[in-house]
């Protein structure tokens, strides 16, 4: 789970999402509007209150059994192809 961070926008009520750093360096954003894939530097904004996503290890899907999916209390995460 070290390869991901949560984010939200203060000005928009209830706006939360997750960024996952994938192998190869690309970033996958799960946002209320939908899923988006971006390269580091293509995402702007955000505060520095968390360790920057680019400094984090890439997600290796925990060897095929993602722990974040297993743990997620609200079943908001699922593994897809």
């Amino acid at each position: 789970m070290a390869s991901s961070i949560m984010f939200h926008i203060e000005e928009e009520r209830g706006y939360f999402g997750i960024i996952v750093k994938r192998e190869g360096g690309e970033l996958m954003l799960g946002k209320p509007e939908g899923v988006e894939v971006a390269r580091p530097g293509e995402i702007s904004g955000g505060s520095a209150s968390a360790k920057p996503i680019t400094m984090r290890p890439a997600c290796d899907m925990c060897g095929g059994d993602p722990k974040c999916v297993a743990y997620c209390p609200g079943k908001a995460l699922e593994e897809v192809e």
């Binding site: 297993a70 743990y71 079943k75």
Partner: peptide, 13 residues
Amino acid sequence: FLSKASELMSKER
């Protein structure tokens, strides 16, 4: 710890 927590979470859900 995380593996055990995930196992418990799955049962609790």
